[in-house]
């Protein structure tokens, strides 16, 4: 219950609706993980499988065509590393 605040009933939207689309982005699920993906750019072929199969939807393409995980959401499941055809992604301790 700690990450939620109480809301006065008068301040609730009609019928307790949530008006801000995609506001879950405020919840940084990245701190759930114990291991984080690390990309070896030498091995990466920019196929985007990591992007395709990430259940957190936290991969996006950078300006050089590499797909990068946003570690503030990554829960460290390791699917990206497992599916990477060139073993360019390895799971390890997050470098802060």
């Amino acid at each position: 219950m700690s990450d939620r605040a109480f809301v006065a009933w008068q301040k609730l939207a009609l019928g307790c609706a949530i008006l801000e689309p995609g506001s879950s982005a405020k919840l940084k699920t990245g701190d759930w993980k114990s291991l984080a993906p690390k990309l070896d750019e030498e091995k990466c072929i920019k196929c985007g499988k990591c992007f395709t199969y990430c259940p957190e939807f936290c991969y996006s393409e950078d300006k050089n065509g590499f797909f990068r995980a946003d570690l503030s959401y990554c829960k460290g499941c390791g699917i990206c590393a497992n599916e990477c055809p060139t073993e360019a992604i390895s799971m390890g301790k997050e470098e802060k």
Binding site: P21, G22, S23, S24, A25, K26, L27, K28, T29, W32, K33, Y53, C54, P55, E56, F57, C58, D70, Y73, K75, G76, C77, G78, I79
Partner: peptide, 17 residues
């Protein structure tokens, strides 16, 4: 995806994917 990051699915949930 029309489902944003920050959802509370378990690690490695293929259903949300």
């Amino acid at each position: 995806s029309m489902v944003a990051s920050g959802h509370r699915a378990c690690q490695g949930c293929v259903e949300v994917l």
